[in-house]
Amino acid sequence: MILSTHDLGWSPRRGEMIVRNLDIAVREGETLGLVGPNGSGKSTLLRLMAGILTPSRGDVRLGGRSLRAMARREAAQSIALVEQHADTEDRISVRDAVEIGRTPWLSALSPWSAADDAIIDDALRAVDLEPLAARDWTTLSGGERQRAHIARALAQRPRVLLLDEPANHLDIQHQLSILDLIAGLGLTTIIALHDLNQVMACDRIAVMHDGRLRALGPPKDVLTPFLLAEVFSVGVAILSDPEDGTPILRFKPL
């Protein structure tokens, strides 16, 4: 159990609880999919897990230790987050943008070294962006920017990688290649996804509904017509891919 939440809840100041009573334990090495309708609390949960938000109730633990007791820097050495809307107007090169991922590891006593350069090279290689390293951020396509963000997260050398709808707004080819890339990293990954067919590749999925955890388990067990009707208000026919037998969800109005 690498990352876990315990009776986790969060509300803005003087506001209603956005997420509540969350008890999720993420296993080392697994890929956990986060699904739920818009506004169900997926992004809030990811931000709580990354330690960007401080819980209003309960806590998030990394390897059993509460994030509350940890310096931000220490948490960032273990947890990396790829946000949905992070972007910049700066004319920064791809390599520079990825180098920023080393921030939690650097200090006056441990300045930039050749080891850091090697880590950046690895990260760029892992997302196939080596040839574009010198390019300006603003000249990148959406898919390339997403890869660069992932490279920056990898440069943190995290134990847990959190991704908030990384395939959003990409065309289908790039969606598949990004998801393929993430699956190949071999990291403990928690990924919020919009497309329910894409979560089939996850080891387990957590279904969020109105800020609560509605179900948690392997996709095939969880995504039942009953749950989909209740949480997403859609009907579904479950088909099967003739090539490999993967279930395919075909949605229809209730």
């Binding site: 990354a50 330690g51 960007i52 820097r73 910049t88 920064i92 920023i100 991922g101 943190q156």
Partner: peptide
């Protein structure tokens, strides 16, 4: 560079 949330995720208080 990528916003305050991104800075927080990189361990900046």
């Amino acid at each position: 560079t990528f916003g305050a949330d991104s800075a927080a995720a990189l361990g900046v208080p």
